[in-house]
């Protein structure tokens, strides 16, 4: 298989993700398997590349939530097909993020978006869902040996829950083991500083950049 031909497949995967075309992604992914193209590289240079381009369009305000969600569906459709074909040695342990929406808030659009983009960026993401009590978030992070707790809220009324998570971490002696990042409509850098979070991200793409910064660009544990 020539590099050129491989690259044609990767580009096609990337474009299909960007075009929100789930069916086309599946079709190309099956052909990648059939042609014995390296699945790991097809994911990295195809699916993830497409999702990163979508994230860029989101930052540029050409794509919005519906588009990103559809791109993400397309990416996951491809991952489902390609993941079983990844070699063992290609699977290094990656940094783990526990993500959730604090109790009291049932909005999870922002959280889902961050999850998708972190997935695409190569982090291992454990999704606790929405409306999660602070203690449960901490327990999950400890049980999962998570490197990061990512919290989102869309409502001012649930911001206290973010502070609780950090307090529980401190009281249980786990604060240094995990980084806490926060985001969502009503959250600001000053709020993040006040509650002692490790970082604040104003948008989903910014959350990815924030983690890259906190971990000095390494997604591996």
């Amino acid at each position: 298989m020539s590099d050129n031909k491989e690259q044609t497949f990767f580009t096609a995967l990337s474009d299909a993700v960007l075009d929100m075309d789930e069916v086309k992604v599946e079709e190309i992914a099956h052909r990648v398997i059939k042609e014995k193209i390296d699945a790991y590289r097809a994911i990295e240079n195809g699916l993830v590349d497409g999702m990163n381009r979508a994230g860029q369009l989101f930052e540029d305000e050409e794509y919005f939530i519906p588009e990103i969600l559809l791109c993400s569906d397309a990416m996951y459709a491809g991952l489902n097909i390609l993941n079983p074909y990844i070699n063992r040695e290609q699977q290094r342990t990656r940094k783990k993020v526990v993500i959730g929406v604090v109790e009291g808030d049932t909005h999870d659009i922002g959280k889902n978006l961050v999850k998708t983009l972190l997935d695409a960026a190569g982090f291992e993401v454990v999704d606790l869902g929405r409306d999660v009590p602070p203690a449960q978030i901490v327990n999950a992070a400890i049980a999962e040996h998570a490197d990061v707790i990512a919290l989102s809220t869309l409502m001012t009324t649930t911001m206290d829950g973010m502070a609780s998570v950090i307090k529980i971490l401190q009281e249980s002696g786990h604060r240094d083991a995990v980084k806490v990042i926060v985001g969502g409509g009503p959250i600001s850098q000053s709020f993040a500083d006040r509650i002692g979070a490790d970082g604040y991200a104003p948008s989903a793409p910014a959350a990815v950049k924030l983690l890259h910064k906190l971990f000095k660009d390494s997604i591996y544990a």
Partner: peptide, 11 residues
């Protein structure tokens, strides 16, 4: 389901 709903606004 809001995730489905947002996608379907487009699809």
């Amino acid at each position: 389901n809001p995730m489905a709903f947002y996608k379907e606004l487009r699809k």
